[in-house]
Structures are given as C-alpha cells and as structure tokens.
C-alpha cells in the first residue's frame, strides 16, 4: 500500500522551471491494482519515480508499505526498495550482462542460493517466453524482448509494490493481455500494482480503479 498527501515534486534542474507534480494526494491499499492515466508530461513518470524511491518528493507526505519515507534513513530506504519492483520505459538492463544475470540480479543482491536463483529465473523466463534467450545480451534482443526481460526482473522477487511505466508499449496485443492478466494475479496475491499507460484500449479491456493526472495535478481518482 501507499499513501500520498499533498505531494509536490520539482525537478532539480531549474532550467525546466515548472513543477512535475503539484499537491497530489492518493491512497492505495495492499493488493489493489491501479491504472495511472494522463497525457505525456502529466507527471506519471515522476509519480512512479517517487513510488519506486528513485526520487524524493519536494514536499508533502509519502508513506510506502507503511514507512514514511521523507525523513527515513538511507539503510531503511534500501531495505524498502527490496520490496518494490519497477518496470521503466527505458528497461534499464545492463548491456554487458546476459539475460540470465540481469533477471537474477535482485535475487543475488538478496544473497539467495544459486540453485534457487537458477530455478526462479528459468521459471519466470519461461513465463515471459524467453527461456531460450538466457545467454543473449540485451543489445541482441528486440524492444519487446527487452521489455519482457525488464518485467521478469521486476516481478521475480514478488515485490509488495510494483510500479510499471508503459509496460505494454513494446508488446503485441496478446503479450500485453498476458502481462495485465499476470499483474491482476499478482494483485490478488497481495501485491499493490500501479501501471502508467496511455493505451485507452487496454484500460477499457481491463477496467480498474485509476488515478488521472494532467499538468502535474491530480484530475481524478476513480473506478474505471
């Protein structure tokens, strides 16, 4: 779960001038699935960055998985990050590590046993349909394949909060449908999920509660 109260965020680079988010408040319970909607530049990515602890809100109150993060210690934030999965638009795969090692990375940072890591990676890669590309390097993969690797890495450790920024962008319709179905299953198992998209078709096909942003302000928080 997470709670935002009167949250604002301004880019550190003053040349951009304006605030990315202004006075946003929202509350999402554990195990809920939430769409995050809005046009480009609405502040969706900034909100996801705050939720994934990649940036810190300029003002307001942010509570993630029960922890107020604004004045939390760095070590506590690091522990909290291990419970959050994130799928970014640029995938953030390490180009000099093969697919297996990219997906195994979160488990290795948690010092899991190598046998367990191998089992988990093979299972998730089979699910995303890339079990034959484990030795490939990210630059050798298509955009859709890279996106699936990034999704596999984000969910392999079953995070309590999962944020995804346009995760269906590079996927075909069938793969996108499989992905959203999997997200709903994860939510049923207790993971709070926020998915940013501007794909109206998929939102209509999988109606759920949504947060809508425009120009950094929250337009509405509604049942889709």
């Amino acid at each position: 779960m997470f709670r935002l109260h009167d949250v604002s965020y301004t880019y550190a680079d003053s040349r951009t001038g304006g605030a990315a988010l202004s006075h946003v408040s929202a509350e999402v319970a554990q195990g809920e699935f939430r769409w995050l909607l809005g046009p480009s530049g609405a502040g969706k990515s900034s909100l996801l960055s705050i939720l994934s602890l990649e940036v810190q809100a300029t003002s307001g109150m942010v509570e993630i998985l029960g922890m107020p993060v604004m004045h939390a210690r760095r070590a506590a934030l690091a522990r909290l990050r291990r419970r959050i999965g994130a799928v970014r638009q640029d995938f953030r795969l390490l180009p000099d590590m093969n697919v297996f090692d990219n997906v195994a990375l979160p488990l290795r940072l948690q010092h899991r046993a190598e046998a367990e890591i191998r089992h988990e990676v093979h299972a998730i890669m089979k699910w995303v349909g890339l079990e034959n590309r484990l030795d490939a390097l990210p630059p050798q993969l298509s955009g859709g394949e890279q996106q699936r690797v990034a999704i596999a890495r984000a969910v392999i450790y079953r995070p309590d909060l999962l944020v995804a920024d346009e995760p269906t962008n590079a996927l075909d319709e069938r793969q996108a449908a499989r992905l959203i179905t999997m997200f709903h299953r994860l939510a049923e198992m207790g993971t709070t999920i926020v998915v940013a998209t501007h794909n109206d078709a998929i939102v209509r096909r999988y109606p759920a509660q949504a947060i809508e942003l425009a120009h950094g302000h929250m337009v509405r928080d509604y049942n889709g």
Partner: peptide
C-alpha cells in the same frame, strides 16, 4: 554509474 544506479534502485545499501 549505470550499474550502480540500478543495483541501488534494487535495494543495494551504500555499505554494500
């Protein structure tokens, strides 16, 4: 720096 930013986002501590 890219790898450091990534493992930092995955929960690696400063001390690690």
């Amino acid at each position: 720096r890219q790898a450091i930013a990534l493992i930092h986002s995955l929960g690696a501590t400063d001390s690690y």
